[in-house]
């Protein structure tokens, strides 16, 4: 029983990291139809920003979260404005363009800060462990779970309870009709992309104390995040949450029974089959086509 609870908690922990990384991707893909292969690099930028704020300004991780969000969001805004907005109606080409941008970001960081591994300190207040259902769990992992859920709530409110969110939903339904009602689609898209990038940056900063920071750390995340988005279904934020935790539990469980490699292979295969038979994702209700 203890082992079972431990497994569940491990799964939740993996799931909350997946959710953090996938949320920005889900918003960008779901609302703009852009497959953002530079997403992993936004995660990486966030992690490096955390390291830099700490090393050069002496800021702790928690204090630098807001500036990190803003910095990475600014990167996202520039990229949307000067690269992606030129690629309207060419969804396949956005894969290529964002991948090129990703390479540039990765190389630029490598040239400027070097490719050696960097480490970010755990916030001292969260470095102990606490008791959850009779299990001792690191406080930081509990914190990550809480932050992931809080960010999800904030994003949901932003999409469904604010004017910008309403404009975005109008554009998703019909861009030209929305535009004829005076909505500035370009501006909303740029803001959306910036927000998604900012979330990725936050994710990078938040996972940086758990893993080492390197220029190519984003590559692994982007693949996992994609699987979450595909499984959860495009345009469904709640689906992203559900699939992040399902995938988290699943990879935790298979890794426990077999090994990491097998876990990864099985999850990937399951997703391939899923795309074929349910391309709209597991957690979306079929609305009108």
């Amino acid at each position: 029983m203890d082992q079972f609870i431990e497994q569940i908690i491990t799964g939740l922990s993996i799931g909350s990291i997946l959710l953090l990384v996938a949320m920005g991707l889900s918003i960008i893909y779901g609302s703009m139809g852009i497959i953002n292969l530079a997403h992993g690099e936004f995660v990486m930028l966030g992690a490096y920003a955390a390291w830099m704020f700490h090393t050069y300004l002496g800021l702790g991780l928690l204090a630098s979260l807001v500036p990190i969000f803003l910095v990475v969001a600014a990167f996202g805004w520039v990229i949307e404005r000067y690269v992606l907005s030129l690629l309207n109606n060419r969804p396949l080409d956005t894969i290529l363009a964002t991948w090129g941008v990703g390479i540039m970001l990765q190389q630029a960081v490598r040239l400027m800060v070097g490719s050696e591994l960097r480490y970010v300190q755990l916030p001292p207040a969260l470095s102990d462990s606490m008791d959850v259902f009779g299990q001792s769990v690191s406080s930081y992992r509990v914190f990550l779970f809480v932050v992931a859920m809080a960010l999800f709530a904030a994003t949901w409110l932003l999409m469904n309870r604010t004017t910008v969110g309403m404009k975005l939903r109008a554009i998703i339904q019909d861009r030209s009709v929305a535009a004829s009602f005076g909505i500035n689609a370009k501006r909303v898209y740029a803001l959306t992309f910036a927000y998604g990038a900012g979330l990725a940056g936050l994710a990078g900063a938040l996972v940086s104390p758990l893993k080492s920071v390197s220029p190519d750390m984003g590559t692994g995340y982007v693949v996992d995040a994609f699987m979450v988005v595909v499984l959860g279904g495009v345009q469904s934020l709640a689906g992203t949450v559900a699939s992040a935790f399902v995938l988290g539990e699943l990879s935790g469980a298979i890794a426990f029974l077999q090994n990491d490699t097998v876990a990864k292979a099985i999850v990937l295969l399951a997703i391939v089959v899923l795309i074929r038979f349910r391309p709209e994702g597991l957690f979306t209700a079929r609305v009108r086509a």
Partner: peptide, 19 residues
């Protein structure tokens, strides 16, 4: 490493302007 950077830029430009 510089070449990889240039290559990334070239690639983005080709995708944007020379499909």
């Amino acid at each position: 490493e510089t070449w990889t950077l240039v290559m990334g830029a070239l690639f983005v430009l080709v995708v944007l302007f020379l499909p």
